[in-house]
Amino acid sequence: MIPLSHFLFISACLFCIGLYAVLTKRNAIQVLIGIEFMINAAVLNFVAFGRFDANGGGGQMFALFAIVLAAAGVAVALAIILNVYKHFKTIDPVKTDTLKD
């Protein structure tokens, strides 16, 4: 039996990698991938906690729910990225800094 802390450790690693990608990557797709990493870290946590949940699979269910939401979110995000590209001719988040004003 793999103890819970291993899952959590993996999940934390995944989250940190995702966070790093989100904060540093110069490509929106890569940022999106980072976000996916972070969501999946959360999903992993759900599944792991669900394994140790005594009464029923609430964790599994939330995990599935989150995966579906993430898929939908990726679709929306990709659409936004496409639009950003159309508008700015780039998907580098450093250059799309019009929020400033």
């Binding site: 799309t96 019009t98 929020l99 004003d101």
Partner: peptide, 14 residues
């Protein structure tokens, strides 16, 4: 602080 760059904002939130 208000650079307009999302990643900076996120960093500061963090």
């Amino acid at each position: 602080l208000q650079s307009g760059r999302l990643q900076h904002y996120l960093l500061s939130i963090l």
